[in-house]
Design a protein around this nucleic acid. Structure first.
Lengths: 316, 316
DNA sequence: CGCAAACAGTTGACTGAGTCAAGTAATTGC
DNA sequence: GCAATTACTTGACTCAGTCAACTGTTTGCG
């Protein structure tokens, strides 16, 4: 939550680089500690890594292994030969390419790997066991975050899911909108307060028959949301549409608006209305594309800025 | 934000262990990639680590280095001898223990290390440079989180600081309280809505002359908060006291209440009042210790539970 | 098609990072 | 005051990992 003094758009800051290096040093040591016990076993660290991959993935070739683990081809070749001679691994000619063989681990290989695998699990369990349940959860979540952000598998298999509101969501959305609009448009804390007021009212008077909320979640994180509220029997209001900057470009905003429109139609509303500000350009594009018409504009001073408020309506 | 299906209080779950191991494998590879270029330099990885430590810390002995980097004493001894013969390092007899020497890096050592250091920085800059500014910030924050939680330096130098309200705080506090009380006491989303309503009102009608908020922050994270609101010229109300489970036991709750009391006295209030529920045991202890008296109790059904509300007053 | 370039994997020849055990001198603990 | 421990050194070794040269196969392109 610390705000960087000089927001660097393009280049990583010195502090960020230093922090990452500090983490790398730290984790290098951590890995060293975790492996200390293991390298007394029958397998070297690299052998263990290779066995692990073979045990957990199918249809691997030597090239795959070398690429994914960063190993020298020659070294790997010998290593596999040793495994084959001990009966831990078998090679089958690859159907498509006669140069390659498909590797698979044998039962004997799994059996030989098991103690090592268990030792590794115990080692990690010991590390985590020292922490409270709270901290343990937090560590795992943070690791996943690092891995996901740094990982090359940039596109998750499911780009996002929509789900109903849960406890914790409205606070999170208030927080993120507050921070985001402060950063992007310089709005002050009164916007955050407005979001809090709207959402408090939404939950308090929530009518599941005529109202709804959609939360976009991506890999366990909230990345967008929208709320549909009943204004009258004929008019529904779309409120607080937002998409995380990191999740933009996936069509989440459009999808959220479409869900609102579909729900409003199904519930028999005649009009879907919304209020926004002209500075929110990307949101406006979504509204326009969805068929909303601008029906009113007015200048106002809110959130510490001079703004132009806009009302958009969609006939359902 | 994913809720664990079966909350394990004592032992790390299989999933957590698997996740940590996955991360370790991932980062092992990552470190390998970062070092690929470096090991073409004049120094081995271990030599670089030793030089790094020497360049950034003072008064190190060989034992310190061996312990912190996990190196064999014999290997380290030879390594230092080599550095000494090249004029990168000097040894001075340790004042307290004639067996030890205090190591220090020379200017020549720094100079020899510099290209390596720069290459490492560039490598990391390259890694981070592929990310958007958003993602970059998130990665660094998550790494720091892992390091802090896993690091042995359990106690930060400043256990916590108090600061005024910032944009983003109220949403964050609503979120955390919602999640926390749902988890600990099974309260439903209406508590979160109540918190949102209270805080929206606080910000909207905030009178800095007679009202205040204190946020407890620890290593850049919000770990507690309290709000003081004006009820009348003579009565102030303390609201929404909370401390993160991970930061309990540091006296943060007590400190927040004390700040409220001091502020209320300074502003000439005659009474400080608050409303709580009897299930919030640790909060009650703080109020009692601070001299609050229980002045009323009533049963109510709120937040999906049968509760006993309590009013506590303190004469100022 | 045909041929050069690239690729998958193998093998030989190294090297140097890291280990292990035994030893010295100083310090600590009882 | 003496045994146990600690800080460091040294000798002897090994094995993980590198590099380059080679075989057979596939790909790309005129």
């Amino acid at each position: 939550m610390t705000e960087v003094s000089i927001p660097t758009k393009e280049q990583p800051s010195k502090e960020q680089i230093a922090d990452v290096r500090a983490f790398t040093r730290f984790y290098t040591r951590q890995i060293g500690l975790l492996e200390e016990r293991l390298h007394k076993s029958a397998f070297s660290l690299t052998e263990a890594r290779v066995l692990y991959e073979l045990a957990h993935r199918n249809g691997l070739t030597a090239t795959d292994l070398g690429r994914d683990l960063g190993l020298d081809a020659g070294y790997l070749s010998r290593l596999l030969k040793k495994f084959e001679s001990r009966g831990f691994v078998t090679r089958a000619p690859a159907p498509t390419d006669a140069r390659q063989s498909v590797l698979s681990i044998t039962d004997a290989g799994r059996k030989a790997f098991e103690p090592l695998d268990r030792a590794s699990r115990e080692e990690v369990a010991g590390l985590l066991g020292r922490l409270s349940a709270e901290h343990r959860e937090a560590v795992v979540a943070a690791m996943q975050r690092v891995q996901r952000l740094l990982g090359q598998n940039r596109e998750p298999s499911t780009p996002y899911i929509l789900r109903p509101l849960q406890v914790g969501d409205i606070g999170w959305i208030i927080h993120r909108q507050g921070v985001l609009y402060a950063r992007e448009y310089g709005w002050n804390e009164s916007y955050e307060a407005l979001a809090a007021e709207i959402l408090a009212g939404f939950v308090k008077s929530f009518d599941p028959e005529y109202e709804n909320a959609w939360i976009a979640e991506r890999e366990g994180e909230v990345v967008g949301s929208v709320f549909l509220m009943r204004k009258s029997a004929e008019v529904a209001k779309l409120r607080l549409l937002y998409v995380e900057p990191s999740a933009r470009g996936l069509g989440i905003g459009r999808r959220l608006v479409d869900e609102c429109i579909g729900f409003a139609r199904a519930k028999g509303y005649k009009t879907l209305t919304l209020w926004t500000n002209d500075v929110l350009v990307s949101a406006r594009r979504i509204y326009q594309a969805a068929g909303f018409q601008l029906t009113g504009e007015e200048r106002h001073h809110s959130f510490g800025k001079d703004l132009v408020g806009q009302t958009w309506d969609l006939a359902l």
